[in-house]
Design a protein around this nucleic acid. Sequence first.
DNA 1: CTGTTAGCGCGTTCAC
DNA 2: GTGAACGCGCTAACAG
Lengths: 339, 339
Amino acid sequence: MKETKRPTIIDVAHAANVGASTVSRHVRGGKSVSPEVARRIEIAIAQLGYEPNTLARSLRVGRTQTLGVLFPHVNNVFFGNALRTIQTEARINGFTVMLLTHQEEAKLQQEQLASLKRSQVDGIIMVPAAETNVAQVRALLGNTPVVAFDRSLGSAVDSVLLDNYRAAREATEHLLGHRHSHIVAVNAPYKLQPLQSRFNGYKEAMETAGKHAETIVWHESEQLRKELCAALQRKREPATAILSMSYSVTLAVLSTLRECHIALSKIGFIGIDDMEFANFIHPPLTTLAQPSEQFARLAFQQLLGRTSGSKEKPVHVVVAGNMMIRSSCGCKSASSRSL
Amino acid sequence: MKETKRPTIIDVAHAANVGASTVSRHVRGGKSVSPEVARRIEIAIAQLGYEPNTLARSLRVGRTQTLGVLFPHVNNVFFGNALRTIQTEARINGFTVMLLTHQEEAKLQQEQLASLKRSQVDGIIMVPAAETNVAQVRALLGNTPVVAFDRSLGSAVDSVLLDNYRAAREATEHLLGHRHSHIVAVNAPYKLQPLQSRFNGYKEAMETAGKHAETIVWHESEQLRKELCAALQRKREPATAILSMSYSVTLAVLSTLRECHIALSKIGFIGIDDMEFANFIHPPLTTLAQPSEQFARLAFQQLLGRTSGSKEKPVHVVVAGNMMIRSSCGCKSASSRSL
DNA sequence: CTGTTAGCGCGTTCAC
DNA sequence: GTGAACGCGCTAACAG
């Protein structure tokens, strides 16, 4: 068995008794090629098992048909599903996807973006890291099309985001509707605009109801435990419900409650971001899910437009969350509704 | 602002008053270049903001410095962490990673492999889909190095696998040690060798203890519910413990128990594959975790060796699982140990 | 140590 | 409708 080399377009041309450029035209789609010649080419291709060399083509045309995706990580349903959807869409449209993660570190993010740029991807879908310096990112990217996913990247960059304000507001109002006297919001320590919007939504709902907004920022598990337990167990106006602002916060809160031996069933709870195991804990977690597939499709379509040269003004899509009502909010029966 | 074109190696050569190949040599690492010239080149590079064109280089040298990773999906800790680790290792070694998923479908798997081949990746780390036709896969791949990850791909392909037999055996023995009279194994419907090995381990442990092995294969939720509840609630020798053979099975089992209103605390439970939320359910789930980082590193190193031409005989690495003892097995205090 | 030359495989003028 | 020639940016030979 020899190291048989891949056939090139020239091999095909010879075998079919035509010029290389004719093969090229035919391979690339219904350009004007006589039926007879087309047939000969087809045969030659099948015989040799020819496949166009992507590298050479990319080098020549300056497009790679590759999209970069940069996520913080992929260990949750939201990102996992989004990735799957993006890949599917990409495949359908003749693109392949290069996934990178930045682990929420701005520095790594820069490296990964540089790597994507080196790979000459035609466009990028990214979830900006928490401490992202927007100008820095844009400078690095040059004129590679980008769409910000789930988090904003300044008003000049296309984005698809959750209606964060509304999500948090409705979640809060829902809790309020269950007669919770005092709701604490637990937030992540990141300076992210979506988190800020969520906080605003929460605050607005609370103040409209004449209640006092109270937020605990989770920096570290020990500190969270102290503050959260204090809030829930103090004598004077203890908190009776929790609004968790994100996936990782929910994880931390659940750990904390467990450590403090506070039963989830004794309090109200809603978490923004859906959890795969929401149904397995007691009581089942009510969450505000981000529609990941919809996010992904929107982002992909937007990017696709940009890669084919669309020069419209930046588009900012805002999508509604889905209230997944289970039991931790206080409801008796499960249901879901789009906001 | 014009569409300024990227500087090429020739631009650099001119600016530094040297030949293109000298620049090439210098750029690529400590080849013999005079200090004086090296300095001039550095300056030119910095001034022009030159970056080598990966595509052109790859076309020329026939290597892309890209690795393909093909997973069923990424929505769980095991695959998520493995991916992260592989990417990190890759970055350190100057590779970039192209991640694809096959959703456990053999057909999609073939497509994705074809796509990886088109991208001319230097090597592939893959988790073969359940119904994989090994010969078909190998034929498609040609002589691209491959390492099978978490599941075997025939004895001719490098692999890194869990010691599945041992894992299941010890898990079963542990349950037995808690005086469970009757343990059912619940398995996934896939014809995967690791699942078979796990079953064998379970069976061996049961028979050694003079017990009867009983397996339920999860095809569909309705059917699982019927069979599992029957096993747990029958009068004559009801099952008192469950051994779940994989991540997805555990998810299904937990759902089922919930639907049947059977409290996890009433029975014994161990699941192979760790769950992110193991601590959040009651009682906390005892699991047999696959050391994902270790898996990933081993697979990467093996592949790296192959990409640089190692022609040794196929290597099959077997790694020990980690018993993550929490409470569902019957233990009072948490601990973990490597098998 | 350095520069010149010749492709890697393909798409694209531009004549025919 | 078709083929010949050129070049995308880079590296590997080879002279010098």
